[in-house]
Design a protein around this nucleic acid. Structure first.
Lengths: 140, 140
DNA sequence: ATACTTGCAAACCCTTTGCACGTAG
DNA sequence: CTACGTGCAAAGGGTTTGCAAGTAT
């Protein structure tokens, strides 16, 4: 990863959301940008606090909500769990969840997307979004 | 519809789950069997109470949890909402959600299922379950 | 007879919110 | 300067649970 000590990416994210730049939000934004998994609010908060111990739960939730509303992060609710977040400016993908380890792998299938569009079209709808999650176990 | 005044299907469902037959559970089981939508816990409770006013929230949740654990009903959490339930002994299908009306339509696409299997296989997994939800708006 | 079920209400968990203080612009 | 952001702690909404009384088997 080798992140610079200070990255302005987080600031850009916040500005794009029309939010004022504060230390707390900078920490949260950086956590989201650097996350390679799909952290939940609690994890985002814990990681943000490593950078700035003053980040409160309320601010974490409020910032996540604001970014989410502006479409700058995506939210997921895998299985029947808590909300999980990921940065939004990434190519679309679906998720494959290893039920044993909890590991989440991302994938895309142009064919599947294509077929979804056809299904929706046949029923007279246009797709706004979709969610495909495959729950798996390592085979063999 | 034209349901008989008393149907034993519900009892079968309960027996299959290894649960004792009680009036409350019979009401809940019947609600699930007769449901043509995807009711949430609150709706299941309300409908069950039409048959037996003594059904409590606790019993509704406990029965739903028990049936769910035994795989006799399926649970969904469309979008970021409450848990919704549907009877489990029905052919597999995915869901298309009309974001304007909240209407939920079911569909199956053998091709999509096929492609999912291929994706999982390529990553070295076998599919245990999957969930595909398409959020749509009526077109035209 | 006894292990399982019940309703009630309190507890729980995650998330949201009201408030008085703080601060970015 | 002022509108916006903050932490705290309390409130919310959906779901779960401890308990004493009730009931299926």
């Amino acid at each position: 990863m080798n992140k610079p000590f200070y990255s302005s990416e987080g600031d850009d994210l916040l500005r794009e959301a029309g939010l004022r730049i504060t230390r707390q939000r900078q920490a949260i934004a950086r956590v989201l940008i650097e996350a390679e998994d799909h952290p939940d609010a609690e994890q985002v908060l814990a990681r943000a606090r490593e950078q700035d111990a003053s980040v409160s739960q309320a601010t974490a939730y409020r910032t996540l909500a604001a970014l989410s509303e502006k479409g700058l992060i995506r939210t997921h609710t895998f299985d029947r769990g808590v909300m999980r977040f990921e940065i939004g400016n990434r190519p679309h993908h679906d998720h494959l969840i290893d039920v044993d380890t909890g590991e989440i792998r991302e994938f895309v299938s142009a064919e599947i997307e294509q077929l979804q569009r056809r299904v929706a079209e046949e029923l007279g709808y246009e797709i706004l979004a979709h969610r495909l999650e495959i729950y798996c176990r390592k085979s063999g």
